[in-house]
Every structure is written in C-alpha cells, then in structure tokens.
C-alpha cells in the first residue's frame, strides 16, 4: 500500500514546540536557498560572457558588506540557538507528576516495565494527556529509544540511566524505533506505542496485572539480604533508605573516600543504581570507606531487577522498612549472597 506522508503525526505536548522551531528553520532554509539560487541565476543572466576578451571591473571587497554578512548570520544563529535551548529544556525536564515506566533495551528488543509490575516487549501503552517518564538503560550495546510522533529520543546506554518524557495529546498507535545501530537485527528492534483513554488504559492494566514493581522489589530486598543492614531505625551499619529518593545526600569525605570535601549527591535513579552496583563509589556521610556492602553486579541483579529494587526504594515511606527475620544472614564482603534460583 502506497501512502505518501511527508509530515509525521504530532501527538505529544512537545511536538508542536519542536514543529514551530522546525518551521522557523525551514523558513530560514528556504529564504537562504532562494537567495543563493536566485542570485546565481540572476547573475548568470545578467553577466554571462559576451566576448572572449571581455574584462569585468575588478572589485576587491567591501568592508561594510563583509561585516554585514558576518554579523547578520551571527544574530540569526544566536536566535536559533536560544530557541533550540528553550525547546530542549521542554524535552529534557519531565513534569513532577509523570508516571514512571522503565525501559531496558537489548539485542534486539525493548522491554518495558510499569510501576504496577506489568511488562511488555516491543510495546508501550500510555494514557491520553498523562505525562510519562521513561527511565532507559541497556543490557548490552548502545540503543536509542525514539518515538517520532512525539519528537522524543534518548539513547539507551549500558551502565547508566537516561531519561525521556512525553505527554500524548492524541489517541492512536505510533512507531517506536531503535535509532542507534545495534547489530544484525537493528531494523527489527521496533515497537508500537498505544495511546488510549484513561478508562481503556485501566482496563488494559488490570488485564495485564501482575505483582507491582515495588512489590517485586520488596521481595528482592529481602532475598538479597539488603534488609539485614538497611534496617530502618538502626542506622549503625547502613543508612536508612526511607524517603531517600531525590534527597540530597552529603557524602563521606574522610580518609579514603573518593569524593571532594563538601560534596553532595542527588539520590536519583542513577545514584541508587550506582550504589547497588558499586557501593564504595559515593558513600553517605557517616559511613566508612570502603563500603562493607558487597557489590551487586549483573550476575546478581539484572537490569530488570534493578528497576524493581529502585521502584521499591522509591516507594519506601517512613517506618515501612521491613524488619529482618531469623532466616536472613549477613552478606559478607568477599562472598556473594546466596545465589538466586
């Protein structure tokens, strides 16, 4: 079937902003191209060589003109830059009330996890008019998560989180592409995002309902014996994790710690992740270096499980940390906690 669009759908709140800027630059392009082509044609018609020994007047330059065609483009460029930054700020800063969805890219599929524990492969569902914040990572190589209809894109980088947000403004089904070349089946790493009304969405969610991410994370929290040290009230061995998300944490900078005096860190997802993978990287003030906590690498906590743990930590309210039961044992610095089934 041969349909022939040249304008992608514009289905998010940021899309019109991007489009306005796009149209402005298109206008600049057309203007400049018309000017250049027009003058080329005009000069060709006016000044073609009429005789073999014709010698035109020899101009060598004009300071005024040269300053003019340096200064005017500079001003135009600065305008475009400033406008670009304004749109970029819209693109990178998600609203505070965004719904979190976690995305893991791997060769060659996108895995999505919802806060309620629902999972999808190469598909995503969103509610019309409700902002969604994607936290993206990769299990293997670089990928890039792109939804052209929303004008958003972000690379999936192994080893860290990147974010992307959108607020759909139009119900429908849109493409998800991987735009960073990722190996043999790169072009099959595509998916669909379905934007639906709130009611349909809730119905869909309930059909897919599983245990919530935070609930899964709570199980892991016990299974990986995190609870042994992060025990809530007693903060002798490790800091409490209650309401830690997006708090500013002063860091330990006494002997041996790798950070500068007075440094703090924002406890965002990247920091939580780093602290699980490499506990000694940035230790909260009051705890010794190196950390007594074992490092939970990919063989102990997969990227999917990492999202569940973080969802749980984010959900932890004051006084909610479970107490340790008699079965939990202390993880040792050398050995790993008991292997997972």
């Amino acid at each position: 079937m041969w349909d022939f669009p040249i304008w992608p759908e514009s289905a998010s709140t940021v899309a019109p902003s991007v489009e306005a800027l796009y149209l402005f630059i298109v206008a600049l392009n057309i203007g400049m191209t018309a000017l250049v082509f027009g003058l080329l044609v005009l000069f060709s018609v006016l000044y073609y060589r009429r005789a073999d020994d014709q010698v035109p007047p020899q101009y060598h330059g004009s300071m005024l003109l040269e300053i003019g065609w340096t200064a005017i483009p500079t001003v135009i460029c600065l305008i475009v830059f400033a406008w670009g930054v304004k749109v970029y700020a819209e693109l990178v800063v998600p609203p505070a009330d965004s719904m979190d969805v976690y995305i893991v890219g791997r060769q060659w599929m996108w895995k999505a996890q919802y806060p309620g524990g629902q999972r999808e492969i190469n598909a995503l569902h969103a509610v019309l008019g409700k902002p969604v914040k994607l936290t993206i990572t990769s299990e293997d190589v670089l990928h890039s998560f792109s939804i052209p209809a929303f004008r958003v894109k972000s690379d999936a980088v192994p080893g860290r989180y990147t974010t992307l947000w959108f607020q759909p403004t139009q119900a429908g089904v849109y493409h998800i592409f991987c735009t960073e070349y990722c190996g043999t089946e790169h072009s099959r790493m595509i998916g669909k995002i379905t934007v639906m009304e709130e009611g349909d969405y809730q119905k869909w969610l309930s059909e897919k309902a599983e245990l919530g991410d935070a609930l899964q994370g709570r199980k892991l929290f016990a299974k990986l014996q995190c609870v042994t040290c992060h025990a809530g009230e007693s903060q002798a061995r490790a800091p409490s994790l209650e309401e830690i998300h997006m708090k500013r944490i002063p860091l330990s900078f006494d002997k041996g710690s790798p950070v500068a005096p007075g440094a703090t860190v924002l406890a965002d997802e990247n920091y939580l992740r780093e602290s699980i993978r490499y506990p000694s990287a940035k230790i909260a003030a009051g705890y010794q270096y190196p950390s007594i906590m074992p490092a939970y690498d990919e063989s102990l906590v997969s990227e999917d499980e990492m999202f569940q743990l973080i969802a749980y930590i984010k959900s932890l309210k004051k006084g909610q940390t479970p107490t340790r039961n008699e079965h939990t044992t202390t993880p040792t610095a050398l050995g790993a906690p008991a292997g997972r089934p």
Binding site: V18, I25, V80, F81, V85, Y88, L91, S144, K153, T179
Partner: peptide, 13 residues
C-alpha cells in the same frame, strides 16, 4: 536543524 538542540533530538540518527 542538527546544531539546534530542540530539533536535533528528533533528527538525530
């Protein structure tokens, strides 16, 4: 289009 931040995000790759 590609040096401008707001549009490059869409056009990149």
């Amino acid at each position: 289009f590609l040096s401008t931040l707001g549009t490059d995000i869409h056009f990149h790759d």
